[in-house]
Design a protein around this nucleic acid. Structure first.
Length: 395
DNA sequence: ATGTAC
């Protein structure tokens, strides 16, 4: 062993960071995710790890955690830098789920600046394309991403809801999406050079990161505008838009959030599943929670398990029309099983844990009417793509 | 979650 190593070993070992888990004893948390939290806590410079009740294992880093350290670790944010959830009020005359589902635009096809130059949705960007990254603009992505028309269900804090301009029965578009290929490219470039190590030039990383965060937020506006126009509604500004994959400099440390939303006096939509309500909450998380709240119900099982168990338990039909009566637009059977409500924890339990620990106050629920995951098999837009023709409309 | 390779 080199003297260098001996010297390191002889130094008093810095104690690992504290880990706080904001979940009650009867909330199921996969042990792999807790092990990941302990590994993160042992990283150089780590100060405090706050695990949210939706905690579950991720690739390398846990999902549903806020991690504060003196060193910036890009892998703790992950590849989908800027992923978040936004809520847009929308006014529609008649809501028949089948008709709405049929009118959803093809959100797997990017808007092309030249061929789609006259699409009114572009107004949502106001000419801004962060990092000049045009690829994937207007697409929702895969995994847990979605665009959903929901109805405000139970109002739990009428004063707060009315300040947001919401009352029971109102319609909203909920958009969960990130920075698509841009964030992936930024993390890959870092990882190829430095692996899971810290960013040697944190300012350079942060400049790219900030562009991806902005790109994600603008893309959520673009997605909402595409859908609003297709449904004959006027697109507007979001009343809620919080990013749950990002790093910020706060109190002199790097606060990494991975599947954890900023919870310092902000309103956050905590996503349920495609067959259960979501909760709009007023977040008021303090330093113990790294100023963060949960971002959703959280996976209860891996995608592989959800696929295997889902095939035995559910039919495609019951996943496409949920117990709430809502429709799920998803031409990909595998994704439908992976994203089955039964693959997620109960959102009420997650919200209950946030409330119990004083991290958030529920404002209102949103109840799904139509959720878009990926284009329907047999849709006009998908046929057009397959045949190599341009997307919209009929031949 | 992603683009890309298998």
């Amino acid at each position: 062993m080199s003297p260098h190593h001996l010297r390191q070993d002889s130094l008093p070992k810095s104690s690992p960071a504290t880990v706080s888990v904001f979940a009650s004893a009867n909330s199921w948390i996969e042990s792999d995710a807790l092990v990941q939290c302990q590994r993160v806590a042992a990283l150089d410079g780590m100060v405090h790890v706050a695990a949210m009740p939706d905690l579950h294992p991720g690739k390398g880093a846990p999902i549903g955690a806020a991690m504060a350290s003196t060193v910036l670790y890009p892998f703790l944010v992950g590849s989908d830098i800027g992923c978040g959830i936004a809520v847009f009020p929308v006014k529609l005359r008649r809501v028949v789920p089948e008709r709405i589902a049929a009118r959803f635009p093809d959100l797997d096809r990017a808007l092309d600046p030249e061929q789609d130059a006259d699409d009114p949705a572009w107004a949502a960007l106001d000419g801004e394309v962060p990092a000049g990254h045009v690829e994937g603009l207007g697409t929702v992505g895969r995994g847990n991403h979605f665009v959903e028309l929901s109805r405000v269900g139970t109002v739990l804090d009428s004063g707060h809801a009315s300040r947001l301009g919401l009352e029971a029965g109102d319609l909203v578009l909920v958009v969960h999406s990130g920075s698509r290929g841009l964030g992936e490219r930024i993390l890959r470039a870092h990882t190829e050079a430095h692996g899971a190590g810290p960013a040697p030039d944190s300012a350079a990383y942060l400049a790219q990161h900030d562009a991806a965060v902005r790109w994600g937020s603008l893309n959520r506006r673009l997605l909402a505008a595409r859908v609003a126009h297709a449904l004959g509604a006027e697109p507007g500004a979001p009343i809620v838009d919080q990013c749950h994959n990002l790093v910020e400099v706060r109190d002199g440390v790097y606060l990494h959030r991975k599947g954890a939303a900023p919870g310092d006096g902000r309103d956050v939509l905590v996503a349920g599943t495609r067959g259960t309500p979501s909760y709009l909450v007023a977040a008021h998380a303090g330093p113990d929670a790294n100023h963060s709240v949960a971002h959703g119900a959280g996976r209860k099982m891996s995608r592989a398990d959800a696929l295997r168990r889902g095939r035995a338990k559910h039919t495609v039909e019951e996943l496409r029309r949920t117990p709430l009566g809502s429709l799920v637009v998803c031409g990909d059977r595998q994704l439908l099983f992976e994203e089955a409500p039964s693959a997620y924890k109960r959102i009420e339990q997650v919200i209950g844990d946030l409330v119990h620990h004083g991290l958030a106050t529920p404002v209102a629920t949103t109840v799904p009417l139509v959720t878009y995951k990926t284009a329907d098999a047999g849709s006009a837009s998908r046929d057009a793509r397959r045949d190599g023709r341009r997307g919209r409309g009929r031949p």
